[in-house]
């Protein structure tokens, strides 16, 4: 069954190559999940089962690791992402107001994706950009010294009110 998956989807082929390169080492599980998420955008059941099968690990162990770490997401993400940093420096400079503004504008809560799959709103514990707080990451680009207004300007491009 898994051979047929990797034959039909090129991404599984790439993942398989990485697993081979790591010599199917079970301690490489987290690395392989990183790779898988990079390829697929999220970790669906098929991907998790495939990794478990390749590393000869119980599916429960793979699922346990995937759900333990915040970085892994088991749901598909929107076309764009907006990550509001909620580290201490950003927080004391009003990051929670930024988050509230986006939540209100896009009618979603942190961690959710808009129904049209255009925007995923996420939060980060601290991205280490405290010198330029409050920071927001739009589609992987860290943007310094944000305000609710400047954030909405960005988000409006993706989500109509």
């Amino acid at each position: 069954m898994y051979q047929s998956i990797s034959a039909s989807d090129k991404r599984f082929k790439i993942l398989e190559a990485h697993i081979k390169k790591s010599q199917h080492r079970q301690d490489a599980l987290i690395e392989m999940l990183h790779k898988a998420q990079e390829l697929f955008g999220f970790l669906g059941n098929d991907v998790l089962r495939y990794v478990a099968w390749q590393l000869k690990l119980p599916a429960s162990r793979v699922y346990g690791v995937a759900t333990f770490y915040h970085f892994f997401t088991l749901k598909p993400q929107g076309a764009h992402t907006c990550v509001v940093c909620l580290g201490t420096a950003c927080y004391v400079k009003g990051a929670n107001q930024i988050l509230a503004a986006v939540e209100e504008h896009a009618h979603i809560k942190a961690g959710d994706t808009t129904p049209d799959r255009q925007l995923s709103l996420l939060t980060a514990r601290c991205i280490g950009a405290c010198g330029i707080a409050p920071a927001v990451v739009y589609d992987d680009v860290v943007t310094p010294r944000q305000t609710p207004e400047s954030t909405l300007q960005h988000v409006r491009k993706w989500v109509a009110p």
Partner: peptide, 25 residues
Amino acid sequence: LRIGAGAFVCGEETALMASVEGKRG
């Protein structure tokens, strides 16, 4: 290199070692 995956508790040394071994931290 071992890349973490966003778990604060992995700064604790025994949790960190579990994570290096590819397990829940």
